[in-house]
Design a protein around this nucleic acid. Structure first.
Length: 557
RNA sequence: GCCUCCGUAGCUCAGGGGAUAGAGCGUCGGUUUCCGGUACCGAAGGCCAGAGGUUCGAAUCCUCUCGGGGGCACCA
């Protein structure tokens, strides 16, 4: 019996009590929260629903709780119901009803924890979107880890998700980038406002090897060829780094394509139809102040060139045209000034900025004692961080704190193999559980038993077993909640609790039969078999949770 | 000046308006015939930055103050 099942049992109970005239309620609440109480004395599960509904039912909480409790006691699998404090309902369920979950999880496999809360939603999730004028650095890593995990979470909740990387491949910075590479090709110093960094020289060397004729030919044509080659090479390098970070985008969206396909003009025309365009001082403005922005934004400058903002607007309209109802942007804290503008674009386009657009802001991170890059100068590169700390440790650590909390990464912790390194702690629990299963099998513990039975949920009566089962039971809710709030860290924190519950169980409950002093072995019983099922269930949930964060679940380590 | 995020144990941080505010590290003390001790169990440690307010009930919601991070372009 899971908390979800209990929750719906309480709802049923409420409805029955209303029908029977025992209580008066206008409506049964959509959600009845059933939680694991902090203290074990308060039963297996508890709900505060009576406290919440008392006012509406025009009765006191304890009285309402009495009505619910009386009916709930009759429910299959419910062992005891108690009313405590101001009106909490504490529920104890019997071991068999709780233990059944182990089998449920194993049979659900990789899909355990997935839900359909967001089924039918089409979501565009944009993150990283770093300029293709240099390698990814630390500023991008948190967004990358968070964004990818959020994508996985949304999919686990049934949403149709497209992850997208917007490539700023138009505009002046590409020219500066090209100028920098050309200078490097000819052994000249970095031009004014150009890109410094050893990676520019790397790109130039790579290019000179393939196309030696590009040297010493300063011309418009050369510049344009160099720009293309350098851009392609740099983008490929970024994609390679992302692949090493286990991130693959569904779509790489080119800003340049917006210009080339006339989408900017089309977007302005659309916005003009909506009545939010204003021509002023020779420039074209979008009247974003209509929707709470602090000033109107320029789309076309007085010199006739479109602004970066114009491309943003066209890009938003593209997402809209492609049928995404929700557009999620994951931006660094240094971009938080964009929120108002993006929402204003959505509003100008006729969307509801509260519903169709969602901007998540991630605070920046720092790395204690971080080494600066030789390749890019005064920045820390993602590729170096991966090599230094590993993809798993990095991704887990970046995803285990809420996006809006500042984060200081301690490399020493990430490299340690003890409890103080959360990713290790969780992965270790998984590896240990896999090992326990291997040992049990080697000692003849099978999952079905000679008579086809083997699994007997009622045998899982140890306190540590109840505790482990309870943790396993809250996984689906954790996933749904994390997806709803776009907060992957909830999954990480959950996994740490689960790992702890697993270790505690493992310390007290043997899966494999004991070996006596004389070398003979205790016979295999259904308790061993059933515990093997429970162990399998723990493995499955640890693996599913890590997968949501894009972190591997090693079977040995 | 305006906007925004943060302030919880010595440190790094969790915490969905509910019961006695939690975890890891660090400190102190325990646990081993046998599945991975890279683990487990226990203790000490708190005016949840401060002040008001809403509520039966606030670390959580609202207002203000203090302290810290980030942001304010016809740049990209």
């Amino acid at each position: 019996m899971t908390p979800e099942e209990l929750s719906s049992a309480v709802k049923t109970t409420l409805a029955e009590a209303v029908d029977a005239g025992e209580i008066a309620l206008d409506a049964i609440p959509d959600e009845v929260r059933v939680e694991r109480p902090k203290s074990r004395e308060h039963g297996d599960w508890a709900t505060n629903i009576a406290l919440q509904l008392a006012k509406q039912a025009k009765t006191n909480p304890r009285q309402l709780a009495e009505v619910i409790a009386a009916r709930l006691t009759e429910h299959q699998g419910v062992e005891a119901v108690e009313i405590a404090g101001p009106g909490f309902i504490n529920i104890t369920i019997d071991a068999a009803a709780a233990g059944q979950l182990a089998r449920t999880i194993v049979e659900a496999g990789d899909s355990y924890g997935h839900n359909q809360a967001l089924a039918g939603h089409t979501i565009n999730l944009e993150f990283v979107s770093a300029n293709p004028t240099g390698p990814l650095h630390m500023g991008h890593t948190r967004m990358a880890a968070l964004g990818d995990a959020i994508g996985r979470l949304l999919r686990a909740s049934g949403a149709s998700v497209t992850t997208e990387y917007y490539i700023n491949d138009a505009g002046n910075q590409m020219n500066k980038f090209a100028d920098s590479v050309v200078a490097a090709l000819n052994g000249e110093p970095t031009p004014e406002g150009g890109y410094p960094g050893e990676y520019i020289n790397d790109l130039a060397r790579q290019m000179a090897a393939q196309r030696p004729e590009l040297r010493k030919q300063p011309s418009e044509e050369t510049l344009s060829v160099v720009r293309e080659l350098a851009y392609r090479a740099q983008l490929a390098q970024i994609q390679q780094t992302l692949a090493a970070f286990h991130i693959e985008f569904d779509v790489y969206f080119s800003e340049r394509a917006l210009h080339e396909e006339g989408k900017i003009d089309a977007a302005i025309a659309t916005l003009r139809e909506q009545g939010h365009i204003e021509d002023r001082d020779g420039a074209v403005f979008l009247r974003t102040t209509d929707f709470g922005d602090d000033k109107d934004r320029v789309l076309i400058k007085a010199d006739g060139e479109p602004t970066y903002f114009a491309a943003d607007a066209a890009y938003y309209l593209s997402k809209r045209e492609r049928g995404f109802e929700a557009k999620i942007y994951l931006l660094g804290a240094d971009h938080h000034g964009y929120i108002g503008r993006l929402k204003a674009i959505a509003a100008c386009a006729g969307d509801d900025p509260e519903k169709n657009i969602e901007v998540l802001i991630g605070q920046l991170i720092s790395v204690k004692g971080a080494r600066l890059s030789k390749r890019a100068g005064n920045v820390i590169l993602l590729e170096d961080l991966i090599e230094w700390l590993g993809t798993d440790a990095l991704r887990y650590t970046l995803a285990r704190s809420p996006a809006d909390s500042p984060l200081d990464v301690d490399p020493e912790v990430l490299q340690s193999k003890t409890n103080d390194n959360p990713v290790f702690y969780v992965q270790y629990a998984h590896a240990r559980a896999c090992n326990a299963a291997r040992n049990a099998e080697a000692q003849g513990v099978d999952r079905t038993g000679p008579d086809g039975g083997g699994f007997d949920a009622a045998l899982l009566t140890h306190a540590r077993e109840e505790e482990l089962l309870a943790h396993l039971a809250t996984f689906p809710n954790t996933v749904a909640r994390a997806a709803e709030l776009r907060e992957p860290h909830r999954v990480a924190r959950y996994l740490e609790d689960l790992a702890s519950a697993y270790h505690a169980w493992y310390a007290k409950c043997r899966i494999a039969p004991s070996v006596h002093e004389d070398g003979t072995m205790e016979p295999v019983t259904d308790l061993h078999r059933t515990r093997l099922w429970l162990n399998d269930a723990a493995v499955q949930v640890l693996r599913n949770g890590l997968a949501l964060l894009g972190v591997s679940a090693p079977e040995k380590m």
